[in-house]
């Protein structure tokens, strides 16, 4: 029955050529997926190392932290908000977890403390946004400054982590003899699937989209707007806690100066994934693709011998192009 329904959707989408365009427009992850495929093909043809399994694993591994930050960011952007403080929130949690473990706290307790802190910051953000009706941009800009300072007040230098649980997400396994998979990848995939399910298959998910799309309509339809938005900030906070865990899995060293552009990188991934900054449109699968696009681009351009700074230029151009395309396609519609 699920297949029949899917077939029905696709048949609706494919009824005419014009509708095919509409399908791409309405299914935000399709365009980015095509872009990702093109990038992979181009780098596979132009370099001889890109397609190697080790390199592909590395590409995925390098997208894990930003990809997880971007997952929380997607939820918030879907409600027409934005989170500039997500990476600062995550960094504070990495420092807390690292210092707790150094001080003798068991790893699981340190992990819980880290998750609690990022979720609490999410609660504060959501509370200010929903209760006092402050713009998310301003709230998180303030929190970014506060959290970044708090991290440096808390510890001036980086803290090495030697706890097996805290670095467990960096543990590698080899599937089918050759494919390198870290626990972090598995956890990221599970998180993406869970949130994809929650957004697309539950009433809560529909409410999140409706609240971002047309808050007044959502209210008149009986949706508890403030509660829905608050739940989004709480869940995003929890996701940032997992991102902190991912970060310690990648590099077992908590550094107050790390991930300074993590907030903007996560927004880049969301935007490249086709989610609208105006809220109410987009998907977490798009964000996954967006995060991979950035990582593929960086890896491919590095192997093609192109300098870091030019890679930044390329990413920036891509972001503007993605939003412009989105805008133009909608402009024609309206």
């Amino acid at each position: 029955m699920g297949a029949a329904k899917l077939l029905g959707d696709v048949m609706y989408a494919n009824r005419t050529r014009a509708d095919l365009g509409e399908f791409v427009l309405r299914t935000p992850a399709v365009g980015p997926a095509i872009a990702l495929a093109v990038a992979v093909v181009v780098f596979a043809l132009t370099t001889n190392t890109f397609l190697e399994l080790d390199n592909l694993s590395l590409v995925v591994e390098q997208s894990l932290v930003v990809g997880t930050l971007a997952l929380g960011q997607t939820l918030i952007i879907l409600t027409a908000g934005i989170d500039l403080a997500n990476a600062a929130n995550m960094v504070l949690a990495t420092l807390l977890m690292a210092k707790l473990v150094v001080g003798g706290t068991p790893g699981w307790l340190a992990l819980l403390a880290g998750l609690a802190v990022t979720t609490a910051v999410g609660a504060i953000t959501g509370g200010l946004v929903t209760r006092i009706k402050l713009p998310p941009f301003i709230v998180t800009l303030g929190l970014l400054t506060i959290l970044a300072a708090a991290s440096r007040i808390y510890t001036g230098q980086s803290v090495a982590v030697s706890d097996p649980l805290l670095s467990w997400l960096g543990t590698r396994r080899y599937l089918f003899g050759g494919i390198e998979v870290t626990n972090g990848m598995t956890v990221a995939v599970v998180m993406y699937l869970v949130l994809w399910y929650a957004l697309s298959r539950t009433g809560w998910g529909r409410h999140v989209y409706a609240v971002g799309n047309e808050p007044e309509a959502a209210r008149l339809s009986g949706i508890k707007v403030r509660r829905t938005v608050l739940s989004v900030y709480l869940i995003a906070g929890l996701v940032y806690g997992i991102a902190a865990w991912q970060a310690l899995g990648r590099v077992p060293n908590a550094d107050p100066n790390a991930y300074q552009t993590g907030n903007l990188d996560s927004i880049t991934a969301v935007v490249l994934g086709g989610t609208s900054l105006f809220g109410g449109r987009g998907s977490v699968l798009g964000t996954l693709v967006g995060a991979l696009i950035v990582s593929v681009l960086r890896s491919g351009l590095t192997q093609a011998g192109i300098d870091d700074l030019y890679q930044n230029v390329a990413t920036g151009v891509l972001v503007i192009a993605a939003v412009a395309l989105d805008r133009l396609s909608r402009g024609r519609q309206a």
Binding site: Y209, A210, E214, E216, A217, A218, L220, S221, G280, R281
Partner: peptide, 11 residues
């Protein structure tokens, strides 16, 4: 049925 219809356009 409200004057502004209370519909979510993207859905």
């Amino acid at each position: 049925v409200y004057q502004d219809l209370a519909l979510a356009p993207a859905q």
